[in-house]
Structure formats: structure tokens, C-alpha cells
Design a binder for these strands. Structure first.
Lengths: 337, 337
DNA sequence: ATGAAAGCGCTAACAG
DNA sequence: CTGTTAGCGCTTTCAT
């Protein structure tokens, strides 16, 4: 026991059984290689008999390419990021690559995580979490590992990024709400989150430009529960808002539930709510939430194609793509038809 | 361009700079190895200077262990499986291993997917999707790659499995509903799904044992939309059911929305609904769905510990763990208090 | 088209 | 404790 599995069959075993050289069997699994039909048949037959398939780790060592893409995420229990992950895996697998999934639990260990990804010699890196420390950026640069940030952008401009214009989205939300409402509120995410910051700033700036100064702000952490709790604080006041912009759909759904079931408010008659992301639940008929849709598919496509362009052609530069949200108006807000 | 990145620094570079042998630097990164503080310091200094870190691919080749666990899933955009994936990644990373995530899109490609996982020399395999073809089972056996099935079980009994007793869950649902209802219905999942089959059979068997024969059945595909659609078909009948058991929460939520917003029914006065899984949304106040909770954490724990027991000690046998659901009663069903 | 041989970057005996 | 050496399983020249 604990004896390393030495029973794996290698290309030598196959070669011996097939009566050819070991390089012949290697060539059998190398698309462009020149090998006669006769040899190929013998090899394939022997391979099947022994249940052989090439060791990709060994191949990677010599080819200096693993066909592995590291995907770094956190919070992907959220519906939005779980769809993002789904799209990434689908696209990456389509391209014949595989995914090393790395989960960040505390912003703490980001550097460690990234560094083990690099140790696995990933061909590329998708990062939907954390801002890169300069150490990591340097390592990627040095090893020439292509990186693309997803819904993050970097202070250092040596790294590619695809993200959504949160500020513009927040502004659109404000513009929809401004006409028919009097008291505005915003439920943000964690202090450090750049997406939360952008979205809320866009919203606040727009309402301030319209002369409104006494809006309210609360903070959640992007989850349903935190949205519910933040809404409770907001709606408990005598000067309760009649329009709430949440920087994530999940918080918006929590807000709607708090409003309806704890405060007996009617939506949108008593309160308009607007979210951000357009997750599946936003269109469920219990909610029918007005929201800012992130063009998820387009974003993933852009990220993937940028990444693979870098992988295939190392002289490519970096590229930052900033996409716009679509305002999806549903019945959770009062607005002109 | 397209020139393989030859600029990676290797242990030889570090050794040269540090003025020691290459094995010395290797030992520096091998926990139990014997090396003097002096050498270690020299190596570490040189390593930092060159930004060196060991190539895990090369290490894996000689150690015959990659510290990679293959995780095979499908449908993980669903809230339940996205939490499952979250738990798996957390636990696996805690154990110092990493995840190769493989997404199944069509039951078709299962064998290919599994086979590439094996080619990557994964130390173990978690499969939450698909039933294994005997080819794959054989490959795993031969390469001695430990496998654990999650919410699946195998005809072949050479493979470990952890799953939830769906039949028992269905029965519990029936027992809750039997007292106060007259017309029962069940919304199943796809024909081929074993989880769907078990859960619905348990339910149906229990109501039949109570002399009820004229229950209704519809089929969805585990999604909200399909649940909504199935409920529409059910509730459009003049002999509409007053109790519906859905084999997944998502379908149950779709059912509730169809009932309330399309048919103007009151829940639970006009219709009781019960789901399966206990996803987050089930406890949202708009739904407050009675459901059968799968002991997700326990299940993942069991799967992980079984897997690692096999990895660390290859003479272990296979083990099948069948866990029970918990009935979580909420206000979507009429039942005794 | 084919085989022999030289590594890929590392670990693991084996001497010293 | 340290350096030397022999591979891990494969791809890739280089001759043939």
C-alpha cells in the first residue's frame, strides 16, 4: 500500500507489444506526425489492448504547455458568477483546454493561490476576484503567462481586462428612477469592492447632478440576506425611501422581500427597486425585477478570445474592454412606459 | 512569437546563483529533506532574486502524483450544485490539492472527459454527473485512480458513492401531504435521471400504499422554467391537484409562481407545494418552501474523506454511503403544526 | 517512414 | 549535510 501506482502502461509497453519503436507510438498521438498506416494500426491495436493513453503531464513537461487555464474566483456560489464559471468552462473546453479552478476564500491567500497556479504552469489565467498584487503581476510577466481580469481592472496597465461599466449602469438606474420618486437610497456592497464602488458612484453622481443631496446609503455584502437586512434599516425610518438601487440583484431581491413581507409595502406603488446583473431570479414572476443586465456572454467571449490571442501569439499587447449594461425594465419600478 | 517561453527559471539557475548543487535547491522545497540553514538561506535568497518557484509538472512526473482532483459535473449552474462545487473546492484546497474542473455538456462526451482527466494523472475523481461506462470504470481501476460518485450510484459495485436517499425523501413528502389533501401530483425530472426516479418513486409508492391511484405526473428538467411549465399543464385541468411534489426546489419555485401569478391560487390554502434540496431560495420569504433538505455538507465531507482515504491508502475498498434527507416544513404546505 | 538518443525540470537514491 | 547520477514518460531532432 501507498506504493506509487507503477502499473500505468507507458508508450514503451505499447511499442514492445506492437513491435515498433517508442517514437512510433508517440507519433501516433501527434496530429501532424508522419507515420505509415501500417504502423499506426499496429500501435492503435496494442494501445487498445493495454488500455493505453498518453501521459499528459510528461507531454506538458517537454512541450512547455499544459493546456490548462487557471480560473480564479470567489463568491461563485452567487448565481451570476456561477453562470460565468459555466460559460468559461464551456468555452475553454471547446478550445481543447482544461480548467484548474481556484477558489479564493479570504483575500488573504490570493498571492499563494495565484502562485500555485503558476507553479502548475498554466497556459493562461482568468481572474474574477481580487486585485493583483504587483508581485503576482511581475511573476506572470516574467513567466509570460497571459492573464485576463474579469470584472476587475488593474492599476497596473500591463494586464488585460474585460469588465462592465458599473458607473454607467448606476447612472442609468438613477435616470430611470429620477422622474417619479422623491427619496432615493442605495444599497452598496463591501467597502473594498470596486464593482460596488463604481455602480453606486454612478448612481449617486447622477442624482446629485439633479440637485438631490439627502439620499440614503446602506451597505450589504452582495447576498440576499444582507440586502434584506439593509432594506430593513432603510425602511424602518420615518423618512423611508421610495426608490432603492441595489448594486446586485440578490440584494435587490432581499430588499423586495423585506419591503413586502416585513413592511407590507407594495412594489412599485410604495417602493421601486432596481438591481444589477440580471440573474435568472430577477425575471421570476414573484419579483420581476428591473435591473442592469451585464452582457455576460459577450464578456466571457471577449475575455476568452483575448486570453487565447495572447496564448497563441505572445507578442500581443494588453487590451482593456469596458462593456455597457442594458437596462431591463420590469415591474419592480414605476417608470414611463 | 509563438516561441515557447524558455525564459522560465529552473532549479539549475538558482543553484548556480546560490553556489550550491541543484539538489540542494530541490531539497529546499521538500519538507522533510535534510539541508543546513546556511544552504537554505543561500538558496532562498537566490530564488527570490530570480523569482523562482518549482515546476509542479516536473515534480508530478517523478513523484507520480499531481495533487490534482478531477471534479466532473454538469448542470452546476443550479444553486444546489454550485454550492456543492463550492464545498468541494474549499475542502480539496484545504487538503493542499487542486481542482481540475470538467463540465459535461452532453451525456455524449462523458467518456472523453473522464479519459482526459485520467490523462492528466489526477490523484482522484469526483463525479456528480453521468453514470460511468464500464470502459471508464476499467480505466480507473487499472490506473488505480480513486473515484467517488456524488449523488449517483453505480451498477458496478467497485466504485465508492455518496448519495442521498431520494426514495425516502419522496416518501416523507407524501406522508406530510397525505392527511390534508385529495389530489396529488408529482413533477419529475428527465426520464434518465436516477435522482428524479428515486424521489418520485418514493412519493408515488407512499401515496399508492394509501389507496390513492389517480395521481398526476408531469415532467420537467430540474429548472425553474420547466417547473413553471409543468405546473401550468397541471393546474389548467378541471381536476387540478391540491398538492404537488417536485423533485427539485427550482421546479417547486416555478410551480409556486405559476400557481400564484398565472392561476391566482393561494398557497397553501388552494395548493400545497413541496420541493427537494433546500436551496437558498427555498427560505426566501416570497416562497418559504417546504422541502427535503439534502445534508450537503455531510455529503461532501463523506465524499472527500472517502476519496482521500483511498488516495492515501490504496488498499482501501469501496464504500457506499446513503444519507437521509431532513424534512423542512415551511408555509408552502398545509400540515399539522 | 522509422529508430536512436537527447533532453524537459525535477526528485530520490547513492555515495561521500 | 551535500553533490552526483539516474530516471519519470514523453516529444523531437537527427540519422538512417
Amino acid at each position: 500500500m501507498k506504493e506509487k501506482r507503477n502499473n500505468r502502461v507507458s508508450s514503451f509497453d505499447v511499442a514492445r507489444l506492437a513491435g515498433v519503436s517508442q517514437s512510433a507510438v508517440s507519433r501516433c498521438y501527434t496530429p501532424g506526425a508522419s507515420i505509415s498506416e501500417k504502423s499506426r494500426a499496429k500501435v492503435l491495436k496494442a494501445a487498445k489492448e493495454l488500455n493505453y493513453s498518453p501521459n499528459i503531464i510528461a507531454r506538458s513537461l517537454v512541450q512547455k504547455t499544459t493546456r490548462i487555464i487557471g480560473v480564479v474566483m470567489n463568491r461563485y456560489a452567487s448565481p451570476f458568477y456561477s453562470r460565468v464559471l459555466g460559460e468559461f468552462t464551456r468555452k475553454i473546453q471547446e478550445k481543447g483546454h482544461n480548467i484548474l479552478l481556484m477558489n479564493i476564500h479570504n483575500e488573504q491567500g490570493v498571492d499563494d493561490i495565484l502562485s500555485t497556479a503558476l507553479q502548475y504552469q498554466v497556459d493562461g489565467l482568468v481572474i474574477t476576484s481580487a486585485t493583483l498584487s504587483s508581485t503576482v503581476v511581475e511573476s506572470c510577466l516574467q513567466t509570460q503567462t497571459p492573464v485576463v481580469l474579469f470584472n476587475r481592472y488593474s492599476m497596473h496597465n500591463e494586464v488585460s481586462a474585460v469588465y462592465c461599466d458599473g458607473s454607467d449602469g448606476g447612472r442609468k438606474a438613477a435616470e430611470l428612477l429620477l422622474p417619479r420618486h422623491r427619496r432615493f437610497a442605495c444599497i452598496k456592497g463591501e467597502e473594498g469592492s470596486s464593482t460596488s464602488r463604481d455602480r453606486s458612484q454612478g448612481f449617486i453622481q447622477a442624482i446629485e447632478e439633479n440637485g438631490i443631496r439627502d439620499y440614503l446609503c446602506e451597505r450589504g455584502d452582495f447576498t440576499y440576506d444582507s440586502g434584506y437586512a439593509a432594506a430593513e434599516r432603510l425602511l424602518d425610518r420615518k423618512d423611508r425611501p421610495d426608490a432603492i438601487f441595489c448594486v446586485s440583484d440578490l440584494m435587490a431581491l432581499g430588499t423586495m422581500d423585506a419591503a413586502r413581507h416585513k413592511f407590507n409595502l407594495k412594489i412599485p406603488e410604495d417602493l421601486s427597486v432596481i438591481g444589477f446583473d440580471d440573474i435568472d431570479m430577477a425575471s421570476w414572476s414573484s419579483y420581476d425585477l428591473t435591473t442592469l443586465r451585464q452582457p455576460l456572454i459577450t464578456m466571457v467571449d471577449a475575455a476568452i478570445s483575448q486570453l487565447f490571442r495572447s496564448i497563441e501569439n505572445l507578442d500581443e499587447g494588453t487590451l482593456v474592454r469596458k462593456l455597457k449594461t442594458d437596462l431591463i425594465t420590469r415591474t419592480s419600478t414605476r417608470h414611463s412606459p
